[in-house]
Design a protein around this nucleic acid. Structure first.
Lengths: 151, 151
DNA sequence: ATTTATGCAAACATTTTGCAATAAA
DNA sequence: TTTATTGCAAAATGTTTGCATAAAT
């Protein structure tokens, strides 16, 4: 059971101050954005989106803020190999990774208890949490196998 | 339901030639590496690993090969926002991450089809694959609560 | 022999760092 | 006032492209 204290945007704001971080305009922008969108975003995307919305912010601030916020556990950082994606913190969630667009959607999914129990017995462990990554295509048929030309 | 033709490294080699791609030394290196490791790797990681192993290959070859191989459906490309991760094509496998020892165990687990279907309907996508990360303790009781630094 | 594939070099893009100016508390 | 935070400029790092050379078939 991962009982996350932070759920709402307000929680995130409060958590910042509780941890000695100042609530600068730029930091608020970032948090607001992450709590607005369901997918996870890269630093560059966050920079682009904010500036497009007229919410001026510099590169440095974006990168440094994301680093700080995720280190403090105020935003979630998904790190895979080179890339880092950031999202808001909510209930234990799994992800649907869209193979067409690269978009990541949060979904809430509980596995059947029997299934968990089965895993625990098989491996001799006590499972405390899990994340599922689904890889999916937007359209029913954009399978990589058939859509490929053979030149 | 993802009936993948390609399973083994040999399959991948054959598929290359079947699709008019030559089996260069560098291309073999990349495929061998991807079929050796369970995780997905970025282009940079693949470049680094191969050269560390004394398997000389240039940046261009790595990037162009990965692009071509994934376009042909011979390797899997997971695209997330900015970054792309590449892996071999094989059966869906999941991991149990031991929170005591850091050990990672491979497990094969099929989710109930109803559950998959339910996800697809809820999100309006066609799921092609999934990976589950379980986080588990060896002993029935170990505290899952991690304290955050408050500096 | 033919054509794909390689990889240097250079363009381009993204991320990080030093540091003086700025703004939150 | 004090100190965290910003953001420019420049460095570092990662990715892509043009093209002459090399290698696979």
């Amino acid at each position: 059971m991962s009982a996350k204290q932070i759920q709402t945007l307000e929680d995130a704001f409060n958590s910042c101050q509780a941890k000695g971080m100042r609530l600068s305009r730029q930091r608020r922008y970032i948090l607001e954005l992450l709590w607005e969108v369901p997918q996870h975003l890269s630093a560059r995307e966050i920079y682009d989106k904010l500036n497009q919305q007229g919410k001026a912010i510099g590169h440095t601030s974006v990168y440094q803020n994301l680093e700080a916020l995720s280190r403090k556990g105020i935003v979630e950082c998904i790190q895979k190999a080179d890339c880092r994606l950031y999202g808001n913190i909510s209930d234990p969630h799994s992800h649907i990774n869209c193979l067409d667009t690269g978009e990541i959607m949060d979904v809430f999914l509980e596995l059947p208890p029997e299934l968990i129990q089965q895993m625990e017995e098989r491996a001799g462990v006590k499972i405390s949490d899990y994340r599922i990554d689904f890889y999916a295509y937007r359209s029913p048929e954009s399978s990589p196998n058939k859509a490929e030309e053979s030149l």
